[in-house]
């Protein structure tokens, strides 16, 4: 019996989706009897685990799933007076309105592009930073630096944006002062459709990279010190140690954070965009969240914005599932 279970474990490791193998087995009449007793035994063996999950499931049902029924207003014309249930059904009207508006696709493109830049350039930075921090042997220095690195995470975008804009000012900003001293003409970064996404991405990195190191450092703290000892005995250099010990040690964390990041691919922070955006760069800077903000400001248009939200969720969900699949096919543990 034991062996069978192990086998299943192996299957799921290799990416076979049939996780719920036990349930599937129940459909075979002949197997039913056998699995019935397996079922009971496993239930009683793991009773404490299931006990722990009771409040958890209760929480998800009451606070996550119950209010989700409100999402039906995406298929209705929601009016306050009629309430969620009383409002008129309109089918896919709001989705059609959304997809038919020609500017929606531009907004969607901008949203995805900014997120891709953010992912490609932003995702590796905390990893590099935490590797650098991990190399620091002076404990006080490491702690101080790390504390300073995440400070911007706590400062609101209104302030960070203001500082960024003045740093990049063509007339008075430091960056252009440096460019000028190198004989390069000043660049109006914030008002250039080419530079703006770069600035946007950099500003995100500036704010979040230090904060992002926390989980990696936590993962590094759990790497078995003996591994490093052994590597040192073998005369491995620092870089080789990073490559062969540290990186594999945090690979699981990287994978999980990458998958979770996928869920946010359809979101761009509203505050950040509002602060950094200006009329010269709307072509590349108008995104879903600013669109919702504009539409939401008028008419209490909940049905429309809910429809948009559902669309975002669906895409995010698909992305999470697919990347989870891909990651697992590399032999890494995914979300499940």
């Amino acid at each position: 019996m034991n062996i069978r279970i192990e086998n299943k474990g192996v299957y799921s490791m290799t990416g076979n989706v049939s996780q719920a193998g036990a349930e599937a087995a129940a459909f075979h009449p002949r197997a039913a009897e056998r699995t019935g007793s397996v079922f009971k035994r496993r239930l009683s063996r793991d009773k404490y685990l299931y006990l722990m999950l009771v409040p958890v499931i209760g929480y998800y049902v009451v606070f996550k799933y119950a209010p989700m029924v409100g999402e039906v207003i995406a298929f209705k014309d929601y009016r306050f007076v009629d309430g969620i249930w009383g409002s008129k059904w309109v089918g896919l009207k709001h989705f059609r309105m959304l997809f038919e508006s020609s500017d929606f696709w531009k907004i969607l493109r901008n949203t995805l592009l900014l997120n891709v830049y953010n992912l490609v350039f932003g995702f590796p930075v905390p990893i590099v930073l935490s590797l650098m921090l991990n190399e620091v042997r002076k404990e006080w220095y490491k702690r101080t630096v790390q504390n300073l690195l995440y400070v911007p995470h706590f400062i609101s975008w209104v302030i960070l944006g203001g500082i960024f804009i003045s740093l990049l000012s063509p007339s008075t900003g430091v960056v252009n002062w440096i460019l000028r001293s190198m004989g390069i003409d000043p660049i109006y970064f914030m008002a250039s459709t080419t530079w703006w996404p770069v600035v946007y991405t950099l500003s995100s990195i500036w704010r979040e990279a230090g904060w992002g190191t926390i989980l990696y450092l936590a993962a590094m703290a759990n790497i078995d010190p003996q591994l490093y000892e052994a590597a040192k005995m073998d005369g491995a250099s620092r870089l080789r140690q990073i490559w062969h010990i540290t990186l594999p040690g945090i690979r699981g964390t990287m994978a999980i954070l990458l998958i979770l990041r996928m869920g946010q691919m359809m979101d761009v922070g509203l505050e950040q965009t509002l602060v950094l955006q200006n009329s010269a760069v709307l072509e590349v800077g108008d995104v879903i969240s600013t669109f919702v903000y504009r539409v939401g400001l008028q008419n209490a248009n909940y049905s429309y914005t809910t429809a948009l939200g559902l669309f975002q969720s669906a895409i995010g969900f698909i992305l999470v599932l697919s990347v989870n699949r891909i990651i697992k096919s590399f032999g890494e543990k995914g979300l499940w």
Binding site: Y65, P67, G70, G263, Y302, T306, G316, F317, W336
Partner: peptide, 15 residues
């Protein structure tokens, strides 16, 4: 079941 709630978030009013 849990992942689903990470992406599909209910609106302010039902909450």
């Amino acid at each position: 079941f849990i992942t689903f709630t990470m992406l599909f978030v209910s609106g302010m009013i039902p909450n």
